[in-house]
């Protein structure tokens, strides 16, 4: 029918070459800008993590595309170039901004989400989310490049979590699924996101308490296990940090979120 009536052409050689040059120049400029931005952000995140063991939020790279080049020395706040050094003995429980600058630089050179003590845990969080919520692995951002952490690899974590983008094919928007594992419900940032939580009966093994909350299109669950560990999951059709357009929705229900949060494989490093 009309399939045969549709005209097709090749780009002219001149247009093809010109557009290619423009593209490569643009992405090279973009890459340079990204790397200039990485150093101060990483350094700021390390400082935030060290001071008071607070929540260090790092979003490195754009749209789930971290810089995968070999590690480079980072110039932190214009204070010189980092060189490898032996790690100082960590001092836990009384960390202040007086942490040696060299240690800060070393930490900045290895983003926390890439730390060998942390990366496997974050990846396992994603794997669990995929298993329960996105079995075709078609929606969740593939690379974990975002971390929310209370504590540090050296001194242990009170909480560890990540936010993953949620894509829907054919849509412009970007949603988000946040997952967080914490040593107690009190330490859960997901728990602090909502004022009102409703207890629900989950009937799932190992679950001491299951709660749900929501507003608008957002929905969240908080499961406290019998060992005290709390797992919070928040699903938001709009990934507010990275997009202005929400996705149309999720394929899972709040019951699926409860079952996911109750997965016994969630653990802190």
């Amino acid at each position: 029918m009309m399939d045969q009536q549709i005209p097709e052409r090749r780009l002219s050689d001149e247009a093809r070459a010109r557009r290619r040059t423009e593209l490569m120049e643009a992405i090279t400029a973009d890459d340079t800008r990204t790397r200039r931005w990485l150093a101060p952000v990483a350094a700021a995140a390390v400082v935030a993590g060290l001071v008071g063991g607070g929540y260090a939020v790092t979003r490195l790279g754009d749209n789930g595309a971290p810089d995968q080049r070999p590690e480079r020395s980072l110039d932190v706040a214009g204070s010189g170039t980092a060189t490898p050094s032996t790690q100082p003995t960590p001092v836990c429980g009384d960390i202040t901004a007086e942490e040696p600058e060299q240690s800060m630089r070393d930490r900045a050179a290895t983003p926390l989400w890439r730390d060998p003590a942390v990366a496997p845990s974050l990846q396992s969080y994603r794997d669990i989310l995929v298993r329960h919520l996105d079995p075709r692995d078609a929606h969740l951002e593939r690379r974990v490049t975002n971390i929310q952490a209370g504590g540090s690899p050296e001194c242990g974590f009170d909480s560890l979590g990540t936010k993953l983008g949620w894509n829907v094919a054919g849509e412009d928007g970007l949603g988000m699924v946040q997952v967080e594992v914490s040593t107690s419900r009190r330490d859960s940032q997901v728990g602090m996101t909502f004022d009102v939580w409703d207890g629900v009966h989950s009937g799932l093994p190992g679950v001491e308490r299951a709660e749900v909350a929501g507003d608008g299109d957002r929905m969240a669950v908080l499961v406290t296990r019998s060992d005290g560990l709390a797992v919070g999951i928040l699903a938001d059709p709009l990934f507010g940090n990275n997009a202005v357009t929400p996705v149309s929705g999720f394929e899972f229900t709040i019951h699926d979120l409860v079952a996911t949060a109750a997965d016994p494989e969630f653990a802190l490093p």
Binding site: L23, A26, I27, D30, N63, A65, E141, R142, N167
Partner: peptide
């Protein structure tokens, strides 16, 4: 193609 680069983290 510029957009492809911008959302490259989602390439599949």
């Amino acid at each position: 193609f510029l957009e492809v680069w911008r959302v490259r983290g989602r390439a599949v």
